[in-house]
Design a protein around this nucleic acid. Structure first.
Lengths: 116, 116
DNA sequence: TGGATACATCGACATCCGTCGATACGAGTA
DNA sequence: TACTCGTATCGACGGATGTCGATGTATCCA
């Protein structure tokens, strides 16, 4: 299920001065942590599959087949994404339905856009 | 100096249908490769230091001190960024001046924004 | 209560990655 | 040519990561 993390708490503070003053090591660590969660082909496909699914959500069992990986491996990647706040899992009976947190993606893009 | 890579050639084709159809493994690999280059605290600081520098560029020698790492390690990270097309290096006499490729950053953001 | 199903966790393995010291390369200079 | 300085590369090391099979956990149903 994985423990959710705070949602980019330093997003606002860091964005404006990003092109003026360098990132602090702490800011860089926080941003890198989020990016690392997305910077994996399997997890990118996971996110895109979730977004392309009906109601933009899916259970683990629906993700194993399209990815061509074992169920433990898919669970591992979902946990990584959940820890980064990129997806959220909700238990409904036997199934865990995962959904992309668009807020987290937006916050990530907001931190990245000043680099452009 | 590092060999520059093609600049996200599949950016346009993949963006539109990203929320409708899942990424192919090849698209996911290409995107993940770029993201991995950025998903490192040292490299994020490198990019931000370059952007905050006069004329938005700096030589390797100017980057070693602020990062607190050895010169070979800084060169290693600059090579990674250059391979991903995120920075470009230009040799001027003894110095190599590095600069952030805003086009690469924009292309990356363009591929990511449909996830929002 | 027992069994079946969906999911998470564990342990192990191979590979990748960040870091360093040592060294090689290359341009400028005397 | 020889020397110096800035940079890139090499080799090695420790730690992180992706993957799997095996196992544990929780829910539903008969």
């Amino acid at each position: 299920m994985a423990t959710p993390l705070p949602l980019l708490p330093t997003a606002v503070e860091c964005c404006a001065p990003l092109t003026e003053a360098p990132l602090t090591p702490e800011q860089a660590d926080a941003l890198a942590r989020r990016l690392k969660a997305l910077a994996d082909p399997v997890r990118l496909r996971l996110v895109s599959i979730l977004l392309a699914s009906p109601d933009q959500e899916a259970c683990t069992c629906d993700l194993v087949g399209p990815l061509g990986l074992t169920q433990p491996t898919v669970s591992h990647h979902l946990k990584k994404l959940a820890e980064a706040g990129i997806v959220t899992g909700e238990r409904r009976g036997v199934w865990t339905h995962y959904r992309v947190s668009t807020e987290a993606i937006s916050a990530l893009l907001a931190m990245l856009s000043p680099l452009r």
